[in-house]
C-alpha cells in the first residue's frame, strides 16, 4: 500500500486513523488535535480558573500519565495559571501498587511536579493486602473503590475510573439513578472540590497512541486482586463493541448524557448529607467508607456488602466506643482545589 498523506497538513505521512472521524493523520497533527480537543473541552466546560490548585490523581497507569503530561503542556502553552500536583493513593497491594508508585515517582521527576502519596494504611489502618486476607478476593474491589474515592478527595484529588466503563456498568446493572451523576463532566460537590474529566471524549486508542509516540512512561500491570471484578467484563465487552463499531464508546457516553431519569425514580435517590462519624459526603447517616471500616474492625466485613450481614452486625449492638474511625473530613476552604479525573 502506498503511504497516504495526512488529511490535515496534506504533507507528512499519515500514521494514525482516528477512531472518531476515520481521518488519517500524521504524528504532529495527531499531537496537535489531541491536545487541542482536550483544551477545547477544558474551555467549553469551564473546568478551571486561574490560580486553581489542581490535583492530578496519578496511578502510574496510561490515562493518568497522559493526563498529567497533557495538562502540564496545555498549562504552559495557554497560560492557564494552574498550580498542578500529582496525588497518588497507596492501597497497600504488594507487587502491584508498590511497582506502579515507582512509575509515579519517575513521572514526578519527568514532569517536575510535586507529588503527594496518601496510603490506606495511614487513613484507614488497613492495607488492601490485609483486607483481602480477611475477606478474600470476591468483594475486595468494593472496599478499594470506596476507600480510594474518599482518599483522593481527602488528598484533594480524583478517582481513576474510565467514564464510559462506569456508564456502561451502571446500565448493565440497571443502576439508572447513578447515570446522570457519572456522565456530568464537572461534578460540583457541596464543598469546594470540583471533579473534572477533560478526557471525557478522547478515545482509549488515541490515549495509548499518544503515550506511545510521546514515549511516556506508564505502568500497565493488571491489579493482582482484580480478575474477578465486574469492571473487567464491562471492559472486554466494550472492546468487542468497539471492534464492531468504532464510535461505540462515544455513543455510550452520549446515551448516558441523554438518559433522562423520571422524577419518581430520582426521588428514590437519597438526599446528600454528611456522614455523622467522619463528616464526608454521604447518602446515609454513615458514609460507605465508615460502614465498610466498621465491618472490618468488628470482624464482620460482609456487613458493608449485604443487607443480611448488616442486620447481623446491628443485632450485635452499636459500634463500640473505641472503634477505629476515619479522621474527620475537613472540606477545603479558601482557594478552590480542583480534582482531575483521567477518563477515557
Amino acid at each position: 500500500m502506498a503511504p497516504k498523506a495526512c488529511a490535515l497538513c496534506q504533507n507528512a505521512k499519515a500514521i494514525l486513523k482516528r477512531p472518531k472521524t476515520g481521518q488519517q493523520i500524521c504524528k504532529d497533527c495527531f499531537f496537535y488535535v489531541f491536545e487541542t480537543e482536550i483544551h477545547n473541552t477544558i474551555m467549553q466546560a469551564n473546568l478551571f480558573s486561574r490560580g486553581d490548585r489542581v490535583a492530578i490523581g496519578a496511578s502510574g497507569g496510561k490515562d493518568s500519565t497522559v493526563l498529567a503530561y497533557v495538562l502540564k503542556t496545555l498549562n504552559e502553552r495557554y497560560d492557564y495559571g494552574l498550580d498542578l500536583f500529582l496525588l497518588s493513593i497507596d492501597e497497600g497491594i504488594t507487587g502491584y501498587r508498590d511497582d506502579s508508585l515507582e512509575t509515579v515517582k519517575r513521572n514526578q521527576q519527568q514532569y517536575s511536579m510535586p507529588l503527594k502519596i496518601l496510603s490506606y494504611d495511614e487513613l484507614y489502618g488497613w492495607t488492601m493486602d490485609r483486607i483481602v486476607s480477611q475477606i478474600g478476593k470476591k468483594n475486595n474491589c468494593t472496599f478499594c473503590g470506596v476507600f480510594r474515592r474518599q482518599a483522593l478527595d481527602r488528598g484533594a484529588a480524583m478517582l481513576q475510573y474510565d467514564i464510559a466503563e462506569t456508564v456502561l456498568m451502571n446500565i448493565m446493572r440497571g443502576d439508572i439513578a447513578r447515570l446522570g451523576r457519572c456522565t456530568s463532566i464537572v461534578t460540583q460537590g457541596e464543598d469546594t472540590i470540583k471533579r473534572s474529566k477533560p478526557f471525557k471524549y478522547a478515545y482509549e486508542k488515541e490515549i495509548v497512541m499518544y503515550a506511545y509516540f510521546k514515549k511516556l512512561d506508564y505502568f500497565s500491570t493488571e491489579c493482582i486482586y482484580s480478575p474477578d471484578a465486574y469492571r473487567g467484563h464491562a471492559r472486554t465487552f466494550l472492546k468487542d463493541l468497539e471492534a464492531a463499531r468504532p464510535s461505540a464508546i462515544i455513543d455510550i457516553i452520549h446515551s448516558g448524557e441523554a438518559f433522562e431519569v423520571r422524577e419518581e425514580i430520582k426521588a428514590t435517590q437519597k438526599i446528600q448529607q454528611t456522614c455523622k462519624r467522619c463528616g464526608y459526603m454521604s447518602s446515609n447517616d454513615l458514609c460507605k467508607a465508615c460502614t465498610l471500616l466498621e465491618g472490618l474492625e468488628r470482624g464482620m466485613a460482609a456487613s458493608g456488602i449485604t443487607d443480611r450481614a448488616r442486620k447481623r452486625l446491628d443485632a450485635e449492638g452499636p459500634a463500640p466506643e473505641n472503634l477505629r474511625t476515619i479522621p474527620f473530613y475537613q472540606p477545603p476552604s479558601g482557594s478552590p482545589t480542583v480534582v482531575v479525573e483521567a477518563t477515557a
Binding site: 496511578s59 502510574g60 497507569g61 496510561k62 490515562d63 493518568s64 506502579s100 481513576q160 475510573y161 474510565d162 482509549e204 486508542k205 490515549i207 495509548v208 506511545y212 506508564y218 505502568f219 500497565s220 500491570t221 493488571e222 471492559r235 472486554t236 472492546k239 483521567a342 477515557a344
Partner: peptide, 9 residues
C-alpha cells in the same frame, strides 16, 4: 508493535 489498551487506567 503490539500494545494492549486493556490494562490499567
Amino acid at each position: 508493535v503490539f500494545i494492549s489498551t486493556l490494562h490499567g487506567g
